[in-house]
Simulated scan of single mutants.
Amino acid sequence: MDRRGLLIGGSALALASAGTVAWHRSTGSMADYDRYATALRAPLDTSPSLPGLIRYATLAANGHNTQPWCFVLQERTIRLYPDESRRTPVVDPDDHHLYVSLGCAMENLAIAARAIGQPGEVAIDDGDAIAFRFGDGPTAADPLFAAIPRRQSTRSVYDGRPIPPADLTALEQAAAEPGVRLILLTDRHRISQMRDLVLAGNNAQWDDQAFMTELQHWIRFNPRDAMRYGDGLFAAASGSPNLPAALGAPAFSLVTTARGERDRYARQMVSTPAVAVFVGDTADRAHWMKVGRACQRLMLTATARGLKHAFVNQPVEVTALRPFLAALIGEPDKRPDLVLRLGYGPTLPYAPRRPVETVVAAG
């Protein structure tokens, strides 16, 4: 190669290298993110503190991963209140998902406390808070404790294998909660009907510009932003490429379409061997928190038995579809609360979480 060619080639390589460095600086690396996620899910130490329990509580499921909770530490009591600054008023105008999220987090806390020898009781104090009151008692070994840091919502195609009857029975038993009913769908006809409701809900939400704006606000397009914010829907957890924030939002608007999302959900539902639907006796905040507790136990049981899960709540979130969902599950006079798909699938990147000190308030 002559000198001119060498110089041109070297300049191009330098520019490409500079561009690669700039790209990685703006997106961060998955290696760094994996270390971050591993630290968030580190096992509790032998002398766990209240912050350690709260860290385990925050690993619970919650809508859009907004983590809409505020823990208040008092003598022998941890109270959990909603953080209204983290509401999602378009998809969740009556705060249903928010209060379900509080129930999920409190169930994690209660399981962890019992497992490390700090048992207590969960109580719904009023319509706005749920509390854990420490008591006396022996350590209670619970296989769900080990599942807490491994649980994740796996939004991918599953492999279609049927779930053994013994595991379905274990899921039903785990979800038992006064005032809450679980309906498990395993026959293909009813799962196909559920698929149609999910797709109809997807269409309605993608036609709603306010919904799309709210959704995009909570998407974290790269590891750097996921770690910096500590919340939101990490794009890599759904199989999307890492993009700088400045490119992620335009790319989302241009590339992600209602038809593409509909096809993706259709494939996911076809691969799903079971769907779980939760219904509370009453459509109020107390029952929504109970639904959250029951659902968290089901998800942890699924995790402990090698199952994956993901929410497909479109038929709950789109008001016009709720009566059709209620009829499908044989509860025509109830408001359905949650819909989850269950099956066998891959482990994806874990969701981010905020530092414990940002979710705790003085008592």
Rank of each mutant, 00 (worst) to 15 (best):
P250T: 13
Q209H: 10
Q209N: 07
V198A: 00
N242L: 14
T186Y: 01
D263S: 15
A283W: 08
P244N: 04
P250A: 09
A249M: 12
L184C: 05
Q193E: 14
I191P: 01
D263Y: 11
P241L: 09
L185H: 08
A246M: 11
R259S: 13
Q205P: 02
A200L: 08
I219D: 01
P244C: 10
V275P: 00
L233G: 02
I183P: 01
A200V: 08
Y265R: 00
L184D: 04
T282G: 00
A251K: 08
A274M: 01
N242H: 13
S238C: 12
D196G: 12
A258I: 08
R190N: 07
G201R: 03
L182Q: 07
V277W: 11
R195I: 06
L243F: 11
A237I: 13
P223C: 01
L243W: 09
S253M: 15
R228I: 05
Q209P: 00
R259Q: 12
D225I: 13
E261W: 08
L199G: 06
M227A: 09
R181P: 05
H189E: 14
D225P: 05
A266Q: 07
N222C: 10
R188I: 12
S253W: 10
V279D: 00
R228E: 08
A235C: 12
L185M: 10
N242R: 14
A258G: 03
S253T: 14
S238W: 11
G201N: 04
Q205K: 10
G248R: 07
V255Q: 00
T282S: 09
L254S: 06
P223S: 00
D263G: 05
T282W: 12
F234A: 05
L215I: 11
L247G: 04
W218D: 03
V270F: 04
S192C: 06
A245T: 15
E214D: 04
G232H: 00
L182A: 00
D207K: 15
F211R: 04
F278Q: 04
N203A: 13
G230D: 12
N242E: 14
L247K: 02
V198T: 06
P250G: 07
A235Q: 10
R264P: 04
R224I: 02
D263M: 13
W206E: 08
L197T: 06
I183H: 11
A246P: 06
F211Q: 08
G232I: 02
A235S: 10
R262I: 15
S271K: 05
V270R: 12
A200T: 09
A249G: 11
A276E: 03
T213H: 06
